[in-house]
Design a protein around this nucleic acid. Structure first.
Lengths: 110, 110
DNA sequence: ATACATTAGTTACGAAAAGTAATCTAATGA
DNA sequence: TCATTAGATTACTTTTCGTAACTAATGTAT
């Protein structure tokens, strides 16, 4: 039995947190507002708020406030966040090659 | 608001399932028995059992029974499972570069 | 001044899911 | 009968989730 690298384990736990992957995917496309993400992702406002706070705390997401009318708040990826792009891209490639349309349907139907 | 690709969403949900990443990491090192994984990973037997069943159902993990004394059961990655290696490697690289030792400590201390 | 609209959350709370440890089952050979 | 491996089951606690209502800041209309 060998030890897990603590940094790896930490990364894994973070990235395994529900919705974190999808939020990263969303932000890789560019800056997003709270309400845009809420509309795009199958996630409630409460959870989205929780996750954004978590990702901000971890230095992965940045929160920018623009004092316009009405107030506009944009979320973007930090350098640390952008560095996760290869992970997301690999998952996309894998999904295209190995996840069948039928498998994917399981998610919807419930 | 654009639609999420169902295959990608399915892959993301699967890979975001708690412990799945660590189990894949473990199996990328080679065939493992139930008790080895239980010892290596911070996860109870019940959950390990659940996750292995899930991964087997998804065609990612294979379960091989050897009728020896005592019975030996080994888990290995299928081709579909091995194809996830780049994802895990990317996460390792990212963790080494961006997760500080202090951050990693958060995981342990609780 | 008062009331309303807009964006971005927060809070409260019950329901559901996930977590654990400990104990039980089953197959097989010594 | 006991030991070994693998896992299922039970009983229980903890965490997480989703809905819906509420807050806060700011500008606009009356």
């Amino acid at each position: 039995m060998d030890q897990l690298c603590p940094r790896f384990e930490k990364a894994m736990v973070l990235l395994s947190t529900r919705w974190v992957g999808l939020i990263l995917f969303e932000l890789l496309k560019g800056a997003k507002r709270f309400s845009e993400m809420e509309a795009d992702l199958p996630i409630s406002g409460r959870l989205l708020s929780d996750r954004l706070k978590l990702l901000e705390k971890e230095g992965i997401v940045e929160r920018n406030i623009y004092s316009e009318f009405p107030v506009r708040i944009e979320y973007t990826l930090s350098e640390k966040g952008k560095a996760l792009e290869p992970v997301i891209k690999d998952i996309q490639r894998w999904a295209e090659e190995y996840v069948s349309a039928d498998d994917a349907a399981d998610n919807e139907v419930k």
